[in-house]
Design a protein around this nucleic acid. Structure first.
Length: 283
DNA sequence: CACCACCCCTGGACGC
DNA sequence: TGCGTCCAGGGGTGGT
């Protein structure tokens, strides 16, 4: 379940190996996970990787030609590298995990695979970088690490939905998923059922502060590995050990001196966990 | 436009 | 052991 921190860890680990590298060939075994033209060209064959960028939970490989491939990992997607020394023999692909839909080969034998069992993720191809922004990323809200307090406040004020639902909406702010929204709301002591338009400027500022420390801390710990998340170098994260409410329903609140039982319920169609004592109920 | 229910899909957990 | 059932989750779509 990659959210912003996990996607950023994938981006960084990918960048370390593919930046400046030329794609020598691409093999597609499941064309239906690709949106847009998919030819060797649009999948960057013969082109060098100029940038690996991220907005919210989405990644994109930008080639020196300006073409780009946006990658959305969805629930179970992985973008993983396979080093030449880990391949049984050159020019012969090693044993690939099931549900590997696309395989890129770089010069000097490095491989990159896109694997996604549940297929909630996918790839989008664009002829130019501007198209990625105008056709796909433009509708996303500001990145959760970059949004300003006043912008968040303005955006929350425009909706009457529960805070939980508003923060999950990628068009409002991009990058938060179920885990980090629950952790964020615990962190600032607000119940998920507060209505977004009741959040004042001070609370919006607290949200932004907490969002930044939570997400950047999670990035520095390699993200949260719950089931199968790993970065492009196959490394797991450790942030899951720090979760205070997510996945802790029925357990004691970790805040010093609290110990109340964490509760959970459906909010905005998502399982939502919170501490009934630490998180102020809406009035 | 805003919001909501519903659907997509698979593997893991759990019950019998 | 093996089978069935339920559930998780992001986001797109179509209905209200």
């Amino acid at each position: 379940m990659p959210e912003l921190p996990e996607v950023e860890c994938v981006r960084r680990s990918l960048e370390r190996h593919v930046l400046g590298r030329r794609v020598s060939s691409v093999r597609v075994t499941r064309p239906d996970i690709i949106v847009g033209k998919h030819t060797p060209d649009t999948l960057l064959t013969g082109q060098r990787i100029a940038q690996v960028i991220r907005h919210g939970k989405q990644l994109a490989l930008v080639a020196d030609t300006g073409r780009c491939v946006a990658v959305h990992l969805g629930m179970s997607g992985q973008l993983c590298l396979i080093q030449p020394q880990d391949q049984p023999q050159a020019n012969k692909p090693p044993k690939l995990p099931p549900h590997t839909h696309v395989l890129w080969r770089f010069e000097e034998g490095l491989l990159m695979r896109f694997t996604d069992p549940r297929r909630f993720g996918g790839l989008w191809t664009f002829d130019q970088r501007e198209d990625l922004h105008s056709l796909r990323w433009a509708r996303l809200g500001p990145d959760a690490l970059l949004i300003t307090p006043s912008d968040l406040h303005r955006r929350l004020f425009k909706t009457k939905r529960p805070l939980k639902a508003a923060l999950l909406n990628q068009n409002l702010v991009a990058g938060l998923g179920n885990i980090y929204v629950d952790e964020l709301l615990f962190g600032i002591g607000l119940h998920p059922l507060w209505l977004a338009d009741q959040i004042d400027a001070l609370q919006a500022a607290a949200l932004v502060r907490r969002m930044r420390t939570l997400l950047s801390g999670a990035i520095s710990r390699g993200g949260s590995t719950l089931r199968d998340y790993v970065d492009a170098e196959n490394k797991t994260g450790t942030q899951q050990h720090r979760h205070k409410v997510y996945g802790r329903s029925g357990l004691g609140c970790k805040r010093r001196g609290c110990g109340a039982q964490i509760v959970s319920d459906q909010v905005a169609g998502r399982t939502t966990a919170w501490c009934p004592r630490c998180q102020a109920q809406p009035t």
